[in-house]
Simulated scan of single mutants.
Amino acid sequence: MLDKLEFIERRYEELSKAIADPEVIARQDEWKKLVKEHADLEDIVVKYREYKTIEQDIAVAREMLKEKLDEESLDMLRDELDALEERKEKVLHELRLLLLPKDPNDEKNVVMEIRAGAGGEEAALFGADLFRMYSRYAERKGWRIEVMSANYTDMGGVKEIIFVVEGKGAYSRLKYESGVHRVQRIPTTESGGRIHTSTATVAVLPEPEDIEVEINPDDLRIDVFRSSGHGGQSVNTTDSAVRITHLPTGIVVTCQDERSQQKNKEKAMRVLKARVLDAIQREREQEYAQARKSQVGTGDRSERIRTYNFPQGRVTDHRIGMTIYNLEGFLDGDLDEIINELIINDQTERLKNTQASQ
């Protein structure tokens, strides 16, 4: 590992010189690639230099222990050495995490889909709560949300809503939200005060760049029809809604939020590309999982990942066994406490797998 870190530091220094070279700056495409590579390596290099400084401090402290010192000074020196050794182990662990292969999708925008599951109207209302939760989280992060398609109920619930979250690192944090979300509460429609359990499913797809997914126009069937609003009421007298079917995969996307047929088509294509890329990546993952059965975690979206319990005011994430008693804040977009733990858990499992394969 240390040899690899030495190589990374040398490469970082080469890049530092290159991106400051006027001749390289003049070649903007090349310069941007080098700047990105430099930025990608920076955290590793900073941490590695911290490690080397600690190593030097440890060497100095050990040399001082050989000197003739009074007992009090020796005790202080031993305490300092213990603290340095502890810090060294922590930095080594952080370096191992930094060296883990990065998910190539982490910096991408996200296409999110929320669908009401079991529970009828209550499930749809919960779906609307989840959409508001992610919208508030996006606001906190400075991200932008654009609704691509939505199907509401008369009571303001969401049967299905598809939206894009645009912002740096959106996928790196929201990818852990895929799965079945369960709510336990007394519905507004319940006169007897009984607690009901309802569900909604969340899918999180990285939005692909155009170069990643090539869609042959001949593989598409495009249908147009009139849009409908809340409860089926007509909102448009022209055929502006668009339904696109990708014939090779059978993936269907419908968009009717815009009055313009062209805008609906553009939005539908963005969602379609994300779903096609997701299908391709899932096929690759399945092949990989079959080849390496020791892989941890299936990522199966049918798994129940989280419960929102209103009577107890708690949120429980079943994947990491974590419960927080801040349901109101969580639904208002305060998700980082659980998401941070999910990231740590993911990194720990990946590190175990990496070490086991070495």
Rank of each mutant, 00 (worst) to 15 (best):
G333R: 01
H230P: 14
D40H: 04
G299E: 09
R350Q: 13
D129T: 04
G313T: 01
R49Y: 05
G192S: 15
K175G: 11
I195L: 11
E160F: 06
I114L: 14
V24M: 09
P248R: 00
Y137K: 00
I145S: 07
V35C: 15
E283L: 04
L84Q: 08
G232S: 11
D300S: 11
S191K: 13
R140Y: 08
S294G: 14
N326T: 10
R185S: 12
Q261M: 13
F310N: 07
I58R: 04
V24R: 01
E80S: 15
L220H: 00
R304M: 11
N105L: 04
K168M: 13
R282T: 15
L174K: 03
Q312E: 14
I343A: 05
I54D: 13
R132D: 06
I25Y: 05
G229M: 04
N151C: 14
Q347T: 07
R144C: 05
D334K: 09
A291G: 13
E214Y: 15
V165N: 09
I44H: 10
E85F: 05
S228C: 05
K66Y: 05
S135Y: 13
I251S: 00
L98V: 01
D336M: 11
V271G: 03
D257W: 00
V276H: 00
M64C: 13
R132E: 09
I186G: 12
D336G: 06
E285C: 02
K108Y: 12
Y12R: 02
G299D: 07
R275V: 08
A128T: 03
G142F: 09
K17H: 12
R350W: 03
H38T: 04
R243Y: 10
L65C: 02
K263R: 11
K263D: 12
P187Q: 09
A241E: 04
R115H: 05
K102R: 12
M155R: 11
E212Y: 04
R87L: 10
W31H: 11
I324V: 14
E207C: 04
R314V: 07
H196S: 01
Y152C: 07
E67P: 07
L15R: 03
V183F: 07
G157C: 04
P208G: 10
R182F: 07
G167Q: 06
I161D: 08
D336Y: 10
